[in-house]
Design a binder for these strands. Structure first.
Lengths: 129, 129
DNA sequence: CCTTGACTTCGAGCGCGCTCTAATTCCTAT
DNA sequence: ATAGGAATTAGAGCGCGCTCGAAGTCAAGG
């Protein structure tokens, strides 16, 4: 199979989407089963075909996952998005809550980094003597 | 049991150490079994008695865990520390490697935070119209 | 003496997030 | 026509980091 195959029906194959997103094909299907992704097109063969919009959504999912949002919570967000216009306040609230969590995470990690750096300095001191 | 009991033998009980460290008593015992902690004193009853040094070490462990270092790697570091003087270079190397990982983590999370903030701005815009 | 409760060990169990297997089907190329 | 490779599903399995349960010991208080 050629990379970046031009699919018979339009859109990327699951292998292409995996390459593009950095996820595995297993994970892509898992995310779909888990309700994080919905409405991916199918070719006449039944094979998934990912659109640009799907890829953008995947990026969002990866961003949320990479910042520690649990699958269940991403599903909640995904449900809101799929439900369409009218629930923007709720989406915003969810994102704001997540932002707060990420910020907290960030300052915590910064503190821990400082701790590690102090330890490193100590060892450097020991080795310099 | 009174909080911060003055133990018959000196040192904190496991419950006190749990309170002080923020870990559960289960986790403290688990960490010991896993080789992250060694040489905790025992009272004549056989109960653990944690010293100030033990608490400081616990803080280090928590810092490493909180920044995503796997148990196995912390064990490796703990083994070096327990082995005593002479392996400071190796400890330093381990910490430097971890520092690099934490820094990378930090910039990644910062990027993701920016992403979330852009999305929030978008929703705020939608809701302001 | 007996209860209460904090501790002990050992080993099983759990939740999460994947990750993989098996059995099939479908497309493409020779 | 057929072989090979990529997709499909449902469901099992895994690795990590705890978390808990069972059964027992020990010390203090009523």
């Amino acid at each position: 199979m050629e990379p970046e195959t031009v699919a018979p029906d339009t859109g990327l194959t699951i292998a292409d989407a995996a390459r593009a997103s950095g996820l595995s094909v297993h994970t892509l299907r898992y995310y779909e089963r888990a309700g994080l992704i919905g409405g991916v097109d199918r070719a006449s063969s039944g094979h998934r075909r990912y659109s640009e919009a799907d890829l953008a959504w995947l990026e969002t999912i990866c961003c949320l996952r990479a910042t520690g949002m649990p699958i269940a919570r991403i599903r909640r967000y995904a449900e809101l998005v799929r439900a369409g216009a009218g629930n923007e306040r709720e989406r915003l609230a969810l994102l704001e809550e997540h932002r707060a969590a990420v910020r907290a995470q960030l300052t915590e990690v910064q503190g821990h980094l400082a701790f590690v750096e102090r330890k490193i300095t100590t060892y450097e001191g020991i080795l310099d003597e």
